[in-house]
Design a protein around this nucleic acid. Structure first.
Length: 595
RNA sequence: GGGACUGUGACCGAGAGGUGAGGUACUUGCUUGUCAAGCAAGCCGAUGACGGUUCGAGUCCGUCCAGUCCCGCCA
């Protein structure tokens, strides 16, 4: 017996056909001489009717069936009578009148309920993760995985059309101290030595360019041993792209074309070219390098209005060249004291000392009223662009902290006040990322993107001066040919044009404190390769799950992966990570040191 | 490394120091058309683990475990 249709396929046009459906029993409703089964497969649900009068044997067997049994049904598609149709399911105009039923497999009562009624909620996440194969039967998760498949399929089609070659690179590679923490794999054949799993195929894709492969891409698994977040898993998938003779403009066009195609899958029509913001401007106006442009509420600089203030917190901020900025919450005058306290707590997580506020209600109120006086406060509110009924939230401090806390506050307030429109897509390029970032603890600069990222051509003279004359503080001002594609506040892709000249590469190593010997030890093979005729090249990588998050608005990466891990990087289903047999350890010459 | 929240029957979930609702699932019976089937009955737990405070703890305190979210981290 072969199935003829999926459980989501039948329509009124199919009435009269004899069909075979196979699937899982979602529900059974027993009415004595009449029994209904909602049959579910990946495509949908079809109602099957068992009638004692017309199919006594099948009807009797149907009574034995329970939830999640796997059955095959042979029957006739019949039109449902007016008033008996079910508009909630796509097949709701028809039903299958069963002639035969075959129980393909029975099922234990599930450990949690897959089919929900309004009176119950989804089981807790750990229970569902333990029985992931059952949770995945839920139509929502299946839809996510199918969208993921269609997205990746579309990516492959597009990249192929654009002349790219999909090339696989090794999973067992070598650990480098740069970047994220590596997952390491012990070598049995060479005891005491370790492979690392790739954080990304970075060096290999550049080697593909040196190899003359010209246009490379890969749907690549990446591994990073860092703490997890709602949008971060230890292993994830990237569309990794690199092309020779590239420029930023070529990369932008390629990715805009790709995103345009892929976002069509969720019914979105992205306008190209995407608008662009430099990193500096994004930070200044949104306090974020991945601004969500679906709503306004831009950060406004208020330090000009406060020049010469005697209010100590503000005065000391200005004196130490910090920033005082604010955002306007439309209609925010109704914010309660409690809400403002909560927002202050929220801002403090990002290092903000305090959150000052002004409310333009029926009468002016402000946490700064005593300190600054009514006149100054009104001037501040006006400068921020607030009108009657609004509130202004103000944070003062070091530029980095003001951006982080006020940028996060902007998002938080927008969420709380429901200021973010749905079904709107606002992509943009964030460009000209800094080359280097100062690391307070280590007291030195690190490459912000990675050490092979090219500086802007016009910043090259400054770069030479910074390194050759050892003016290290200039390093913070250097801009890179590095870019992110951001959609609705999600960093969907990031990349750069690479350095292809040895001289510039040496400058970078010097800037981040790598002696030629150290650079050679870490990247020796790669530096060699660069000297054999490296074409100018550049590329980009798009996190597949992140891309899907921006397409769907789904806020948790786990919902876009088949078998994700928990926040403590565990797989509750297979119970990984686990201990290994002592013999395995011995073979690898490894010893566990107990605390 | 740090912070916040959560942990009650198979599942969801109420219970603001004095033995724990309700719903769903499951089992049985009844109802000829439901679609979150209905109705009735049954079944099911001493509340994540351990320790403490108390005459008495699910409720308070401590430690641990697990889950979620966030800061740090993620070039």
């Amino acid at each position: 017996m072969e199935r003829t249709h999926s459980c989501g396929a039948l329509r009124s046009e199919d009435v009269g056909k004899q069909v075979v459906l196979m699937g899982w029993v979602a529900r059974r409703r027993d009415f004595g001489p009449l029994t209904f089964i909602d049959l579910r497969d990946r495509d949908g649900i079809t109602q099957v009717v068992f009638n004692e009068e017309t199919a006594a044997e099948a009807h009797a067997r149907a009574k034995e069936v329970r939830g999640e049994y796997v059955i095959a049904v042979t029957g006739d598609v019949v039109l449902r009578a007016e008033g008996q149709r079910n508009p909630k399911i796509t097949t709701g105009d028809v039903e299958v009148s069963a002639r035969e039923i075959l129980i393909l497999n029975d099922a234990r009562t599930p450990p949690f309920q897959l089919e929900l009624t309004s009176s119950d909620a989804l089981a807790s996440e750990d229970t569902r993760l333990k029985y992931r194969y059952l949770d995945l039967r839920r139509p929502q998760l299946q839809a996510n995985l199918r969208l993921r498949h269609r997205t990746v399929a579309e990516i492959r089609r597009y990249m192929d059309e654009q002349g790219f070659t999909e090339i696989e690179t090794p999973i067992l590679i070598k650990s480098t101290p740069e970047g994220a923490r590596d997952y390491i794999v012990p070598s049995r054949i060479q005891p005491g030595k370790f492979y690392a799993l790739p954080q990304s195929p970075q060096l290999f894709k550049q080697l593909c360019m040196i190899a003359g492969l010209d246009k490379y891409y890969q749907i690549a698994r990446c591994f990073r041993d860092e703490d997890l977040r709602a949008d971060r898993q230890p292993e994830f998938t990237q569309l990794d792209v690199e092309l020779s003779f590239a420029s930023t403009e070529i990369v932008y066009r390629l990715v805009e074309g790709l995103f345009k195609r892929v976002f069509k899958l969720v019914g979105a029509d992205l306008e190209t070219p995407f608008p662009r913001l430099t990193f500096a401007e994004a930070m200044r106006r949104y306090g974020s390098d991945k601004p969500d442009l679906r709503f306004g509420m831009e950060l406004k600089d208020l330090s000009g209005e406060l020049e010469g203030t005697t209010f100590a917190p503000f005065a000391s901020t200005l004196e130490s060249r910090g920033e005082i900025k604010g955002i306007v919450v439309q209609g925010g005058a109704k914010l309660s004291r409690k809400a403002l306290d909560e927002l202050q707590e929220f801002a403090k997580r990002y290092g903000a000392g305090a959150l000052a506020w002004i409310k333009l209600g029926d009468e002016l109120s402000s946490s700064l009223l005593k300190a600054l006086g009514q006149e100054t406060i009104e001037r501040l509110a006006r400068a921020a662009g607030a009108v009657s009924g609004d509130a202004v939230l103000i944070i003062a401090g070091r530029a980095k902290i003001v951006a982080a806390s006020l940028g996060a506050l902007r998002l938080e307030v927008a969420r709380r006040e429901k200021l973010i429109p749905e079904n709107v897509y606002r992509p943009l390029w964030v460009t000209e990322f800094p080359m280097f970032e100062f690391h307070e603890e280590d007291g030195r600069y690190y490459a912000m993107h990675h050490p092979f990222t090219s500086p802007l051509d016009e910043d090259l003279p400054l770069f030479r001066r910074a390194v050759e004359e050892n003016e290290t503080r200039l390093l913070g001002d250097l801009r890179a040919k590095a870019y992110d594609a951001v959609v609705n506040g999600v960093e969907a892709a990031g990349g750069s044009i690479r350095i292809h000249q040895r001289e510039v590469q040496n400058l970078v190593f010097k800037a981040i404190g790598l002696t030629p010997e150290m650079a050679r030890e870490r990247f020796g093979f790669f530096l060699d390769a660069l000297e054999y005729g490296t074409p100018p090249h550049g590329g980009i990588a798009a996190g597949i799950e992140r891309l899907l998050m921006s397409m769907t608005g789904i806020e948790n990466i786990r919902d876009l992966m088949a078998f994700p891990k928990t926040a403590s990087a565990a797989d509750l289903m297979i119970d990984a990570p686990g201990e290994v047999d002592p013999r395995q350890l011995e073979e690898l010459r490894l010893k566990i040191v107990k605390e």
